[in-house]
Nucleic acid binder design. Sequence first.
DNA 1: AACTCCATGTAACATGTTACATGATTCG
DNA 2: CGAATCATGTAACATGTTACATGGAGTT
Lengths: 198, 198
Amino acid sequence: MALRHAVLAALLEGEASGYELSKRFDIGVANFWSATPQQLYRELERLDDAGLVNVVVVEQRRRPNKRVFSISDAGLDELYAFTTQPTRPPAMRDGLLVKVQALDAGDADAVTKALGERLAHAQGKLARYDRLRDRLLAGRSEAEYVRASERIGPYLTLMGGRMFEQQSMRWITAVLEILAVRSGRGQAVTAHPGGGRT
Amino acid sequence: MALRHAVLAALLEGEASGYELSKRFDIGVANFWSATPQQLYRELERLDDAGLVNVVVVEQRRRPNKRVFSISDAGLDELYAFTTQPTRPPAMRDGLLVKVQALDAGDADAVTKALGERLAHAQGKLARYDRLRDRLLAGRSEAEYVRASERIGPYLTLMGGRMFEQQSMRWITAVLEILAVRSGRGQAVTAHPGGGRT
DNA sequence: AACTCCATGTAACATGTTACATGATTCG
DNA sequence: CGAATCATGTAACATGTTACATGGAGTT
């Protein structure tokens, strides 16, 4: 049930509508959890039913009404309790890794292309994280920020996100180099056994 | 449908029973995909139905019979096709990150403890990966291995796994240091707003 | 006129988790 | 004698994905 707690944690940063949350949890932006809009709308219903969030309907002039959610006292208790509960280590589930694992029986050019795309994606995410970091630090050094700021959680997960993307980039770069070496090596690429399908 | 292709990719390393596969895909070992035994048994049924694997029932003397699976020609075609298909960037979903994000409203000691446990877990995985790497290299240098070995996919994902765990360890270490600085800072920990639940 | 943004949802499906059940064998 | 390992599964549930639907406002 970690989606539930991820939503509560996100609401610590301030109240939000489902739509606003769906942007914070967008896969291309999220640094501590990601979820689709549909998951969020469903979960927000449940959180409301469980009394873990407060809801206010905000009527808007030239826009559809929105329901603005904030964390309730019961929600804060629930979130506190969550931090004391065990969590399992995360599962590796990345299609790109499967492609790389299957490289020898797959289309090496296609995998190389996919690696390049992932590299660009990581670069984009990193740039966003860096902008966010600059905004958080607001001119202060990290040491200053760490001492002075009220909250530290968001900064720490942001750092995690940055390091993760940098790490991805290093891995992809290393893989691409190795693939370049191998494609330039005497031995040609072995034709794929099926010989072309249909 | 990446589980399907992960299983096919795993079978490139040789035939296996469901039970054997479940060990390769164990969350504490897997370096390119993880899955529970139940998922694997279900998926192997489907792969069999779709003709993507060959199945041989091996009768054993003092053991229950086992069904040994290997990738079929159709399976190789399917896997090849998969390497040309787009995959989405992976979703961040780690309960530990949620805890860290919620640190300021949570139990800092419990989160610190969880970070320590994750650090140990990462260390263990790294050690396993290192042993696997030594076995793969079999005394050769990486450069030699890259030039000479038939397959490269498994080595590359292994490298990915190693780098990922090292990266996790660096992040956790940095977080623990920052938390140590903050807990030693003038300002005491703010009591949690709910004040104790129930 | 077409497209994107705001704002919400439903329905159907695919995937992943947890608990349980069975039964022999080997290890300490 | 109890625990771990080998080997397979079923059932129920929780979570996540995809496609679609609605409708006004602003933008090109």
